[in-house]
């Protein structure tokens, strides 16, 4: 646990950098010695601080949701965007836009979460019904399911002229996060704490139904709890910032390589690394082509797909 402290310090430094990177000139020094004018303080409090907090919460939440999903599906290659979870949350958002566009954010998030829950449940039901011989088939099935769901979303979005609104969440972007528009992410944070409290159960669930039953654990109940956590976390991130791809895949796999999957030990690391990676990617996206921004979803997509390839190739060479 002690070694977590340097990691937390690193996150803190990244967060400070994130606070002072941007088009408007707000420097750490001017804030500290009180020379910052009112406009600068306003930018800091209304935009930069919410954005940084949102990144931290979303990053740790998605990474932990990815890990839990990997335990529930008993497959290392799944994460919310390869199981139909994200696409289902998107469909839920479309339904809200069509039927009740004036709903408060929290209610939107809940509707998206219910859809995400149904989609992920469907994915796990498919896995149960068709025992797949190859571990690589599992994310492929999930991606296909996600494709079908997003095809439905696209069709209705096109018919009802909501294409632009739906396009906004398809690529995760934290530039529009402002005070008052990110607070649902605290729900995700509360759920990740709940996940940590139940960490041992998820590790046991990762050993399979028979192991869980032997150890006296109600497998169905822990599956249900895990699904609710994954769906709510995913939905809150999708509603706030859009799809953050690959994060839930990369971080759990790296942490697993380094320290294994005893979640009691590894979940804090997964949370911290998730927050750190998304912060770093967001900072890169903001600076590489300044004053324009590259959405964090794009940066993560590039890094994540390369890492996914690495994972696949590593597996191949191990088998051979």
């Amino acid at each position: 646990m002690k070694s977590l402290i340097p990691a937390l310090l690193l996150i803190f430094c990244l967060a400070v950098v994130s606070l002072f990177v941007g088009v408007s000139d707000v420097s750490l020094w001017s804030v500290l010695n009180g020379t910052a004018d009112q406009r600068q303080v306003m930018i800091l409090l209304a935009s930069r601080v919410p954005r940084t907090i949102a990144l931290l919460l979303a990053g740790s939440g998605i990474a932990i949701a990815g890990m839990i999903l990997q335990m529930l599906a008993r497959n290392r290659f799944v994460e919310p965007s390869t199981t139909g979870t994200v696409e289902s949350a998107g469909l839920g958002m479309l339904v809200v836009l069509l039927l009740a566009p004036d709903m408060p954010v929290m209610a939107k998030m809940l509707v998206a979460a219910v859809f995400a829950l149904a989609g992920t449940g469907m994915f796990l039901a498919v896995l149960r019904a068709i025992p797949l011989r190859s571990v690589l088939m599992v994310p492929l099935v999930g991606i296909m399911l996600g494709g079908m769901i997003s095809a439905v979303t696209t069709f209705f979005a096109y018919r009802f002229d909501l294409f632009q609104s739906m396009g906004a969440w398809a690529n995760g972007d934290f530039s529009a996060v402002l005070r008052g528009r990110y607070e649902t992410l605290w729900v995700a944070f509360a759920l990740t704490i709940a996940a940590y409290i139940a960490a041992d159960r998820f590790t046991v669930a990762g050993m399979g139904e028979e192991f869980s039953t032997n150890l006296g654990l109600n497998y169905r109940r822990i599956m249900a709890i895990g699904l609710v956590i994954v769906s709510m976390v995913t939905a809150s991130v999708v509603v706030t910032a859009g799809v953050v791809p690959f994060l839930g895949l990369i971080v759990p796999n790296i942490v697993s390589m380094a320290m294994g999957d005893n979640l009691r030990k590894s979940l804090p690391w997964i949370g911290i690394c998730g927050a750190g990676l998304i912060l770093a990617c967001d900072i890169v996206g903001r600076t590489i082509n300044a004053p324009f921004e590259i959405p964090v979803g794009t940066v993560l997509g590039i890094i994540g797909s390369l890492f996914f390839l690495y994972l696949l190739l590593r597996r191949q060479s191990r088998v051979a």
Binding site: Q70, M71, A73, T203, G206, M207, F211, S256, G260, D261
Partner: peptide, 8 residues
Amino acid sequence: NHLAARLT
């Protein structure tokens, strides 16, 4: 016994 979790 196939475990998805990587445990010591």
